[in-house]
Computed example of a mutant assay.
Amino acid sequence: MTMTQASEYVSERPERSFSQDGESGYASPGSSTGGLPEIYFSRPHLKYLNEQLANLEPQEILRWCLISLPGLHQTTAFGLTGLVTLDMLSKINAGTKRQIDLIFLDTLYHFKETLELVDRVKKQYPSTNLHVYKPLGCETAADFEKTNGEKLWETNDNLYDYLAKVEPAQRAYSELRVKAVLTGRRRSQGGKRGDLDIIEVDDAGLVKVNPMANWSFQQVKAYVDEHNVPYNSLLDQGYKSVGDWHSTSPIKEGEDERAGRWKGTNKTECGIHNKRSKYAQFLRAQELKDKEEALVEALRNVETQQSASAVSV
């Protein structure tokens, strides 16, 4: 097969996507990700791009993204790195019609300082469109707890991640026709992010770009100070990575940036950067568990009815 034939073969398979680890997958037409795989990278091409982009500064990577990636959005929890990305984009796009919309996943458990920051960001970057997604059918934490119980992050953290973060993210990607996203992940944050590539493709075909993967916290903070970028006031109180209030704490000198997230556990990611197939497996297990519990309850009811009948006789 010639290179031209190979290219034509890939273009004839619109549902096919390649993930970073060599796996390939298909999105079903009825799934929330059915329209995603429209950007294609063969494994050798993806490797080549990562080798080239690794030598560029974030602004250059962002310019490449603007030229190369349709359906591009920025996902953000308004962390320091995401805010720097937003500021860089505002300067690159100054005077143009090209704007990158923001997607903010409001879990309903953010610090008040984070929500105050959102308002400040909207004022400083008024031309940026912000899309806020919350857990399905919920507007407040009380709504969420009414359906799922209190402290779900303690009783079933996988279910919490799915309901508060993964499902809203997938809903956003589907409704906004997202094909690629900019993230704020960096290698210096430690954990699973230590060997981060610039470009990744998840198991549903979504392209994820980490334009500031090479930068340190010091470089990010220096940019914030130099360019007067708004940031979360919690950073001045010892926080370096800010998520939900119930799973975020300040860090000590010398600890990794994300050491304050889920402290005392082995957890390092909130769910949206894990494989989607992991959550498909989780939901299947949850469904089987629910069916098993329903069966046990039905048998218990039958036994109760039989006992009642025996007594009445």
Rank of each mutant, 00 (worst) to 15 (best):
Y223M: 13
K240R: 15
V178A: 05
I199A: 14
S241F: 15
V209K: 00
G243A: 11
K240L: 12
T155D: 13
K192A: 15
D202C: 06
V242Q: 03
N210A: 02
G191H: 09
K165I: 09
G205P: 15
V207E: 04
P211D: 01
W215A: 01
D143W: 02
W153D: 14
Q170E: 09
A180W: 07
D143M: 07
R177L: 13
Q218N: 02
D225S: 12
Q219R: 13
M212T: 02
Q237C: 07
L182Y: 03
Q189H: 15
V207R: 04
Q219D: 02
Q237K: 07
W153F: 15
Q189P: 11
T155G: 04
G149I: 02
D244V: 11
Q189R: 05
N232T: 14
V220E: 01
L234K: 09
K151L: 02
V207S: 06
D143L: 07
N228G: 14
L235D: 08
L176C: 07
N210Y: 06
R193D: 04
Q218S: 05
S188H: 12
V207C: 13
G149Y: 11
F144D: 07
E226N: 14
Y223S: 07
E226S: 11
Q170T: 12
T183L: 06
V229A: 09
E145S: 03
E145G: 05
R185H: 11
D244S: 10
H227S: 07
N228K: 11
W153V: 14
N232L: 15
D225Q: 13
K165D: 02
K192S: 15
M212E: 01
F144I: 01
K165S: 03
T147I: 14
V181Y: 01
G205H: 06
N232H: 13
I199Y: 13
K179Q: 15
F217V: 09
L152G: 05
D244R: 08
G205D: 03
K146I: 02
N156F: 05
G190F: 08
D195I: 03
R177A: 13
G184K: 10
E145N: 08
K179G: 13
L235V: 06
A169I: 01
Q237H: 09
D143R: 00
D161P: 00
H227I: 15
K179F: 06
G184R: 00
T155A: 10
Q219W: 01
W215S: 11
V209I: 13
G194H: 09
G243Q: 04
N214R: 09
